[in-house]
Design a protein around this nucleic acid. Sequence first.
DNA 1: CTGAAAGCGCTTACAG
DNA 2: CTGAAAGCGCTTACAG
Lengths: 330, 330
Amino acid sequence: MVTLKDVAKLACVDVSTVSRALNNSAYVHPETKARIMEAVKELSYQPNVLAKGLREGKRHTIGVVIPHLHMTTFAEITQGIEEEATKAGYATLICNTGDDPAIEKAYLNRLRNGFVDGIIIAGTGSNKKLLRDIQVSGLAVTQIMRKQDPEISSVTVGYKTSAYEATKYFADKGCKQIGLINGTMKLAPYKERYQGYQKALKELGLTETTAEFDNPVNTMNYGYDCTMELLRRNPQLDAIVAAVDTQGIGALRALKEKNIKVPEEVRLISLTGQAIGAMLETSMTAMEIPAKELGEKAAVMNLEDIGSKTKKPSARHLVYSSVLVERESS
Amino acid sequence: MVTLKDVAKLACVDVSTVSRALNNSAYVHPETKARIMEAVKELSYQPNVLAKGLREGKRHTIGVVIPHLHMTTFAEITQGIEEEATKAGYATLICNTGDDPAIEKAYLNRLRNGFVDGIIIAGTGSNKKLLRDIQVSGLAVTQIMRKQDPEISSVTVGYKTSAYEATKYFADKGCKQIGLINGTMKLAPYKERYQGYQKALKELGLTETTAEFDNPVNTMNYGYDCTMELLRRNPQLDAIVAAVDTQGIGALRALKEKNIKVPEEVRLISLTGQAIGAMLETSMTAMEIPAKELGEKAAVMNLEDIGSKTKKPSARHLVYSSVLVERESS
DNA sequence: CTGAAAGCGCTTACAG
DNA sequence: CTGAAAGCGCTTACAG
């Protein structure tokens, strides 16, 4: 491995001068600098990020703690985070928790030790104290998609509004029996969606039909099972609001197996629309969210906090709104 | 930040003794050890991975270089990698290249500098020399899904066989005009699939209909566009072999828009089946691959190479076979 | 403008 | 069984 020392030797200067030249941290005589740069090129020297990190107390790495990567909006969010992080010279460390508090705890404990400078998390909500400790200890923490703790900055979507609007939208179409496929109320987004749904129903004078099982919530099978449950609870069902796209895909499958026509007999909307909605056989109406942008913004906020001097920057909360995109399913 | 020094002071021993106790690297008197452990607990000390890494010349991190995370098999593969890596105490660094050789190059250059101990890559094939250099320099390199370089270990799928079998399968069903949605031949998997398809057609005495555009290849839109192209080139088409699931989803959409019944008029199969196939409205027949397991195996191989003394371990190539799962689309 | 020294937090021969 | 010292590769006051 080529080190600063090798470069210094070849350029006949001290390592400190090489360091200064490379970091532009102080004036170095142009001729000296040129000689150093030549040596760097000749040896194809690359600074050791570890040593640099140790010395500077920085890792140039952001940890991303999410429930699940495959077939969820988190894959797209993660790409957004990675893009921004890379721009700033930061690497992205991935941690899939499967929404298991114990796994999440283990990851957080690992991350806090000099593994990363900041953490972006879509958490289970079961490690609030640990997360606050981490923030207090000086790491930048940003919540994404799930605002479980108001004391910690977040980038989320207006879930309540989106569920409210979706329900109203169906009522406008004449639906009277509107069902909701939701997730565990322990997670803020699901709770808020439920509130929006309920608020709309109340205003409309309609009664609720909901289905919600245990984790994992972000899956097609979950949507399938919940749809079957909704139909059992309310055979008159004429509309389904699904929290996420994957649930919606499962719902379409379940409805097809039951020989129920979409949208003629049952209308369907997803509250977390992504690209796939447009490409389904029955394309899916959705409240679309800019997932990648959410990731980018979260990264930017996190990087800001990493850069700031104050130990615990005041929490900022960014809420995106979703946009109705009508397709065949409604 | 709590350091070894703090623990040593509290336990009234030297830092070296604390280090030995914590790493079980030498005998430490049980009483001393107990005292140390108590101090560790009291201060909730956590070793600094950076310093440890610098000293040991290890990062305990694996870099994962893939084209795209969202809606591809790589999300699942990445989860498999992460799981195995975590078991071994390794973290996982994500790099999305978008199959752009320049971005890939930039990432590889960053990774080689002490950023990681090993790299698992689904590469573009355009940075072969760099990748070999990296391997020679002592990093463990493992190819996943795409075996672009026979000198570097790989975990892949028998793409040729899978395309061959899929084509034969359709012929057995009486299809005569079997089309292929493929990707760029620069990528090994697409090339091999084409070879398998051709071989089968030759044996069957059938003629080919293929569609293939430029990148990005792993998308639904790509499948949609290719299907339209196939239908234009061959209106008699009675079967479509799609390289990956997302292409298949796009194909189903295109066929629906053209009012072509699946499987009555055109049959469809995906060569890289994952969970979503079962949940589509017209569930998709596929040659299923154990994506997560591929990721796990690649991680295990990479970790083995990281652990081995030899600088450049001899290349091993693991080839998974895919399994036909019949569903409604065929 | 540049060198010499100290130090980031750890591990590992080397003594004893 | 344990301490003291050296060193991983870097950066940054401190002199001059």
